[in-house]
Design a protein around this nucleic acid. Structure first.
Lengths: 298, 298
DNA sequence: GGGATTGCCTGACTAAAGTCAGGCACATGG
DNA sequence: CCATGTGCCTGACTTTAGTCAGGCAATCCC
């Protein structure tokens, strides 16, 4: 990887995280310990479950409990049982009191003020360029936060991805898409050792999927490669494809293949650029127009 | 200010400083307290004076001393008197030992690795776009770190700016620039109550200057407005002008004026866009081609 | 040369952050 | 309905970060 690019990223990290980050903290914690301020902020006007707070802030259970007790003692927060009927009686939710809400608004105001202080010294044009550049950095950084890993096909997140996939395909195919007509894929085929289902997640939210079936005595077959709109163009599809190929290659398969619909033009371009060759139809999938195959390096 | 811009900056701050910043810290501090790791890093292979470390890291004198003692105890650092002949016998320099250098290299390697991990998931094109956007964000953020404040004209930083100003003017004027020919400005004229000299600094380094003389019974006169190349285009000149005008207005002056050379085209454009009107020559400055005046709001 | 200043150090603190073990109440799956 | 697990809590700790006052030696400025 180009050394100049790496150096530029390092410079950016240094400038931005140290200076802006540190300043941001000072703005947040108004006399209050930073951890408390962050917690108060994270609870927010709508309240939050204690478990959610723990995972969002990455805090130890005991430490969080103590922080909540302190805020409760200051009259900013109330912690009580979740009042959802039929809910788990163990989970507790934290909510802001009137005073807590006032405090939260103050934090919100300060956060706003800080953002303004970043923009204020710039002339109008540059302001817009800064914001545009920030949006681009943010969007592209997201790519490094997407993690791809195996997931049972029955998992709700996996199901959500497959549904999103079907919805999109239904919207884009000329004559719509009827899952009953397409050749079916059963969950058992996507569980090791028969195959695998991979999920791409961003901060725990599913943003893409892909699967491979390891057919005995035939090339492995890639299915259901899908990437959410929110992260399209960030190379997630390509990484998914790489992972699926790697899975097959590591288990001894020498080739993978897949079929696709002519409406999915970006997908087709990606397959070609990833080294897939168009081949004669190898199945009778009614929605397919193109069939691809790629030989895997051993 | 546009609410959308503010919201975008806040989103950026949140994503970048919290996620990237936190990760960066984890990468840095390998088992060692973060403050120690940062200090080790800041000392660097070339060593550093203790005073410099204190100001760069913003640490309390006692705390820094203790940190150095700890690193010394771990055999990573040696602290000794500065060995420059004729140097101040009180200043001490910290230097890395062999083990310290190894540790430093490891930190460097990790920092590199982290930068790579940000770039790695992206396809090549996007990688370059990310780096370009980062560079733009960094550059434009710098504007918010520039502070403008009064400074005695005899201060070495002020002198450095005035020298840089004269150098640049000498380079750009058709026939060069000879300070002896130009109408002189004496330090006393730029000290309250006669006038003021303002310095623009970025992290303590001078990056621009400007001065105003409060003539009795005449418009105040703006002199020596200069901005370093490194921060040009970020609105620093305009801010400097605003501050100088404010200074004069607050003390009861109703107008400011200035003269300038035709070679300084951006400056002339800035004066016009800031509301300055071209007027007849009000002095006999040999290097001036344009004279401007602006009425100040009371 | 003597008083004030500066650079660095030590001792004596405090507050914040974070860890760990255990305990109670509720939930869940046989 | 019992064993096991989960969510939250408390008590008892440690480590890290940071502050403040004072002190010594070198230096600077009359």
């Amino acid at each position: 990887m180009d050394v100049n690019l790496v150096a530029a990223v390092r410079r950016f990290n240094r400038t931005v995280t140290q200076r802006v980050g540190a300043l941001d903290d000072r703005y947040m914690a108004r006399g209050r310990p930073l951890a408390q301020a962050r917690l108060l902020w994270e609870i927010g006007p709508g309240g939050a479950e204690v478990a959610a707070l723990r995972s969002r802030l990455g805090l130890d259970s005991g430490y969080l409990s103590r922080l909540l007790r302190t805020l409760e003692g200051d009259g900013l927060v109330t912690v009580g049982p979740a009042d959802r009927a039929g809910g788990d009686g163990r989970v507790r939710v934290a909510a802001l009191t009137g005073a807590g809400l006032a405090e939260w608004s103050e934090l919100d105001r300060r956060s706003d003020e800080f953002a303004r202080s970043v923009l204020a010294p710039l002339p109008g044009r540059r302001r817009e360029r800064l914001v545009a550049a920030m949006a681009e950095v943010e969007r592209l950084l997201v790519a490094s936060l997407v993690v791809i890993g195996p997931c049972p096909p029955g998992d709700p997140r996996a199901r959500a991805c497959v549904r999103a996939y079907a919805r999109e395909v239904g919207r884009r195919f000329d004559g719509g898409f009827d899952p009953a007509v397409s050749s079916p894929v059963h969950d058992e085929e996507l569980v090791p050792p028969a195959g695998v289902f991979l999920l791409a997640s961003l901060n725990g939210e599913p943003v893409g999927c892909g699967a491979v079936k390891l057919h005995a005595g035939a090339p492995a077959e890639i299915k259901r490669v899908w990437v959410s709109d929110s992260v399209r163009g960030l190379g997630v599809g390509r990484r998914m494809l790489d992972e699926l190929e790697r899975y097959a290659a590591e288990r001894g398969w020498a080739a993978v293949r897949l079929d696709t619909n002519r409406a999915l033009t970006e997908a087709i371009a990606m397959y070609r650029s990833a080294g897939y060759q168009e081949v004669e139809p190898f199945n009778t999938e009614p929605y397919a127009h193109h069939w691809f195959e790629k030989l895997l390096a051993p």
